[in-house]
Design a protein around this nucleic acid. Sequence first.
DNA 1: TAGGCCAATTTTGAATTCAAAATTCTCAGA
DNA 2: TCTGAGAATTTTGAATTCAAAATTGGCCTA
Lengths: 213, 213
Amino acid sequence: MLHEDTISRLRTLLIEGQIAPGSRIQEQTLCAELGISRTPLREALKVLAAEGHVVLLPHRGARAAKLTMKDVRDLFDVSAALESAAGELACQRISEEDIARIASLHAEMARHFAAGAMELYYACNRAIHEAIVKASDNPVLVGLYDGVNTRIRRARYVAPMTQAHWRTAMLEHEAMLNALQRRDGAMLALVLKTHLRHKAEEVERAGFAETLK
Amino acid sequence: MLHEDTISRLRTLLIEGQIAPGSRIQEQTLCAELGISRTPLREALKVLAAEGHVVLLPHRGARAAKLTMKDVRDLFDVSAALESAAGELACQRISEEDIARIASLHAEMARHFAAGAMELYYACNRAIHEAIVKASDNPVLVGLYDGVNTRIRRARYVAPMTQAHWRTAMLEHEAMLNALQRRDGAMLALVLKTHLRHKAEEVERAGFAETLK
DNA sequence: TAGGCCAATTTTGAATTCAAAATTCTCAGA
DNA sequence: TCTGAGAATTTTGAATTCAAAATTGGCCTA
């Protein structure tokens, strides 16, 4: 499947910053690099434009979308809205098995945190958030959440998160798991909103690469 | 601009049900109808697939997406999450002029309601909701909201909304305007959530065309 | 007559070709 | 030397062409 493949390859290049934000995308050059013809590439560019990763200027080609601090703030606000809604739904719909799975992810994350294995900590963290959203059993919500978070991921943070932030985040995750286990939707939504606001604030404090250019 | 044009023309055909949900989309046939070649049509189909209006089956063509009652429920849940988040942001950011504009739209809507001019009432209603979302000053949110509501609009309701529903809706709109004028974000979010839950319940009660087939 | 296999046709997927718009380059004139 | 008009080149937008996969139809066999 050449077309879907092209979309995800290009999307990865954009997220990882291999194609610099704001840089011009030459069709022929990219075609040569990817080893495909212009037709599937152009189809992919149009889809990525709809997703917000690329901007298309009529008769003037495509550019990798830039991400301003305002964009990041906006994306975090939307992400928080979607995730807290997902949390409420999840409390009504999640199975006991899935709660247990998230609890074990949480325990694993805590171990990685204690050991200072930040990469692994991060992976667990993300898996927990994604598991909660999935548990909403709302494919529309899951799809939009994925899209928004993929866009956020393009922000490359300059300063590292502070220890204080990590500690707070761990406490918030405790509260999340607690609310989920009690199936307290309102509480989970509240904790998630707070958690994501804190994360957005930390990102803003740290700044991210593109803002500096 | 042939490409963008094709997308919106096709999107309209899908929303209005001119292309029946679930029906097969033959490329050559559509090309002839739209008077274009397959290249821009295929690009449009890919974008519409990303938007959720069309499903693409590899080597087996495109179909107009079906809308189940579950889909509609899911879409309403997401719409509520986005709109209540927008309401909170709007209360922080909206200008006095835009509040006044919404107040006048509200008054106009009330007149149409009293006169039983439901089409005009509907138009005002939608304009108010869109104005609130726009006032969030969050383009990401606005974009996703538009997309979700466009998809909801494909549901063609069978039974009309009841009088009781309209009356409740009017009261809720009063409360919305009130909260907005006092810039009470939490209250506006709450009212919007309730309002949209009621609407979703009414739609579910009424049923919609596709469910019957 | 029913079922299944193989060829013919249709339809999708991708490359190539053609046309139009934008950019770049050249060169005349001040 | 600097500016600007216009031609040449590049690049995008869309149609056409070519290849591969799926569907359809016919024919043979049981």
